[in-house]
């Protein structure tokens, strides 16, 4: 069945309503954060839209992390936000220059505590669409199976199995992402979720490294039907280490011909007052696309 825009917009409403209700009933508070900043988080692979006002440059944020994570320092233990996000020159079936992110944080927790949230959220999201879609969820001709627990796959095992090398023995960033896109992702299950977890230390600039193994960062990606849906990790709260990582990201940016960004000093200054926490960002449009069996995320935008 192919849904019309009217059904898509109703589905989006049902999805957002169910997500908000789940967060409220689990003790989260909703936070509304700005989308403009003079000091965004420097990330090597994200090009930001900029605009200027009275000689100052502002950037449209690519995620709410800059504003959301420091709020943990106010003794807010469970927070979430649903915000627009902007990334330049990203356009494909699963990418748009503007999309919506659901991001949430749990104080006093690690990345594995988020697995439960993900399982619950996919379950309630799927159920929420029953008034429009009925009982079954089909994506690309296959019935989606959300039975729990979701499968876990370590990055190391996935690479050894599908790409034939170990990214923890050889640091080759370019080769890593190319194989991830063209050798690992096509081999992930097409009809169910999977957590791809434990990335090499250099594969996330904001996540904590494992205490027992500093070559691994406590990060996972939730895939649904082979499509990346959410990125979660144990949050790095060490301002000194975080500053170094931002500097490295800026060096990588320059190598790719992108302008280095100012260091977000305010963000860094709040980290020391934050408790241990885990945080995750989920693409609302992709989730809606898969659950409504749409071909691309443009089809699920509320645009006619």
């Amino acid at each position: 069945m192919h849904l019309g825009k009217r059904e898509i917009i109703i589905s989006r409403h049902l999805l957002l309503k169910a997500i908000r209700e789940w967060f409220f009933s689990n003790g989260f508070i909703e936070v509304q954060v700005p989308v403009l900043s003079k000091t965004p988080i420097p990330e090597a692979t994200i090009d930001l839209f900029s605009l200027s006002n009275k000689g100052q440059t502002f950037y449209l944020l690519s995620s709410p992390e800059l504003y959301l994570k420091p709020l943990l320092s106010l003794n807010l233990k469970k927070i979430f936000s649903i915000t627009p996000a902007f990334r330049k020159e990203e356009r494909g079936p699963y990418h748009l220059e503007q999309f919506f992110i659901l991001e949430w944080y749990r104080a006093k927790s690690t990345y594995k505590d988020l697995f439960f949230d993900c399982e619950e959220l996919l379950d309630i999201s799927s159920s929420a669409l029953s008034p429009v879609l009925g009982d079954k969820r089909i994506f690309k001709g296959k019935e989606i199976d959300l039975s729990r627990p979701f499968q876990c796959l370590e990055v190391k095992d996935a690479f050894e199995k599908y790409a034939g090398w170990d990214p923890f023995k050889k640091k080759d960033e370019l080769h890593f992402y190319e194989d991830l896109a063209f050798k690992i992702e096509p081999n992930l299950p097409e009809d169910r979720p999977v957590f791809l977890m434990d990335y090499p230390d250099w594969a996330s600039s904001l996540s904590k490294l494992k205490n027992e193994n500093r070559n691994v960062c406590e990060r996972f990606e939730l895939y649904l039907c082979g499509i990346e849906l959410a990125n979660g990790f144990s949050e790095l709260m060490d301002p000194i280490e975080q500053r170094q990582r931002f500097l490295i990201e800026n060096i990588k940016r320059e190598k790719q011909g992108l302008k280095p960004l100012p260091i977000p000093e305010n963000f860094l200054s709040k980290l020391k007052d934050c408790p241990e926490a885990s945080g995750i960002a989920l693409g609302i449009d992709r989730l809606l696309m898969i659950l409504t069996n749409s071909k691309n995320i443009e089809e699920v935008q509320a645009v006619i």
């Binding site: 990330e43 090597a44 692979t45 020159e89 990203e90 356009r91 494909g92 079936p93 990418h95 370019l174 890593f176 992402y177 190319e178 991830l180 896109a181 063209f182 992702e185 594969a203 996330s204 600039s205 990606e221 990346e228 990125n231 790719q256």
Partner: peptide, 28 residues
Amino acid sequence: QFSKPGKGQALYRCKLKNMITGYTMDRT
């Protein structure tokens, strides 16, 4: 095909056809 795995660089995968010889190849 446009791909961009989380935290990774954008990848532009192309199938290309040589307009003189007709030879095709894949490039990323």
